[in-house]
């Protein structure tokens, strides 16, 4: 048989946690090597002094109440490192478990200090990562917006490009099929754009094109899509047209601007647009058919404007 009494100190010395044993009147009777390391206090310095002297943080009401309960009822107590940051020192975070142990005719109190400093370190690292990640994420979202803008909008005029037109054309066509309303498609061509370029220079020509895009956008409704379809061509998609009156309102707006003079870069430029329109379902079942039909009408219009 091993005599446990003599064996116990060497066991406690091996345990990789801070172990403290107190008498019933809270004096330190044992303070293991891990505890010496955690607190920088030697067992000989704290032996027989009260625990609140050795660890001043514990000199608080809640600790004394807890000790009273441990002694009286044997109820175990737990103090977390998070709620008691400075329990033993500024540099180490520890959890404290407190239990009553029977000792001859009396009781002793066993304190276990579990070092969780590394956990705090790791979790604060993890939090930093999360913070960085959320920062990166918001940057990425902004970049995505820029990319989308590049992918779906014409760089010069800022209106939709063909990719966005294709997306909306299908969507609006399907909506028209479901709702039974008409979908209008307007083909717009800037007459003699090449001459404008040749006469006033490409720089001014670009600006004229931007003016045309703005005119079209201002003349149409909120859900209409103005798209730059080619060099000097625009297409306007007009969903949810229930009567020709709806359509006429839009066309009247554009007609005002169909033939006019604009001043750009100090030049007085005469601007004229050719316009052709087609409607689902009257003029075609598919977007291609509608474009073809509108294109035809546009050429007829152009011819008229030249010879009319």
């Amino acid at each position: 048989m091993i005599d446990m009494d003599s064996f116990l100190p060497s066991i406690l010395n091996c345990i990789n946690e801070g172990i403290v044993i107190l008498t019933e009147d809270l004096r330190v009777t044992y303070w293991n090597p891990v505890m010496e390391k955690l607190t920088d206090k030697k067992q000989d310095d704290v032996r027989n002094i009260r625990i609140e002297k050795a660890l001043p943080y514990l000199d608080q009401n809640f600790f004394h109440n807890a000790v009273d309960r441990v002694i009286a009822g044997g109820t175990p107590v737990f103090f977390s490192a998070a709620m008691h940051r400075r329990m033993i020192s500024d540099s180490h975070q520890v959890n404290l478990k407190m239990n009553r142990v029977a000792y001859n005719n009396g009781v002793a109190i066993l304190l276990e200090f579990i070092d969780v400093t590394n956990q705090f370190y790791q979790i604060s690292q993890l939090r930093d990562f999360v913070r960085q990640l959320s920062h990166l994420n918001s940057q990425l979202q902004q970049k995505e917006k820029v990319i989308e803008k590049l992918a779906y909008y014409d760089q010069l005029t800022g209106v939709a490009n063909r990719a966005l037109f294709d997306k909306f054309a299908d969507k609006y066509l399907n909506l028209a099929k479901q709702s039974g309303l008409m979908l209008g498609l307007m083909f717009v061509d800037v007459n003699e754009f090449k001459t404008i370029n040749d006469t006033y220079g490409h720089n001014t020509g670009d600006k004229v094109m931007t003016r045309v895009a703005s005119l079209l956008t201002e003349s149409t409704r909120k859900n209409d899509i103005v798209c730059r379809y080619g060099g000097d061509e625009f297409i306007v998609l007009m969903p949810e047209i229930s009567t020709f009156n709806d359509y006429r309102k839009i066309v009247n707006q554009i007609d005002v601007n169909k033939k006019r003079h604009i001043v750009q870069d100090g030049y007085d430029i005469s601007l004229s647009l050719s316009i052709g329109v087609s409607f689902y379902p009257d003029d075609g079942e598919t977007i291609d058919e509608l474009i073809e039909k509108a294109d035809e009408c546009m050429y007829a219009d152009k011819h008229e404007s030249r010879h009319g």
Binding site: R69, G73, T75, P76, V77, F78, F79, S80, A81, A82, M83, N95, V116, Q119, F120, I123, L126, R127, V130, R131, S134
Partner: peptide, 28 residues
Amino acid sequence: EEASMEFTDIDFDTVKEIGNIILNAIIG
């Protein structure tokens, strides 16, 4: 924002202490 993180060991220990306080008081 980081509140959406999973519970950490530190959170568990905090709740363990709160639980210990409340349950000790009630049963005690």
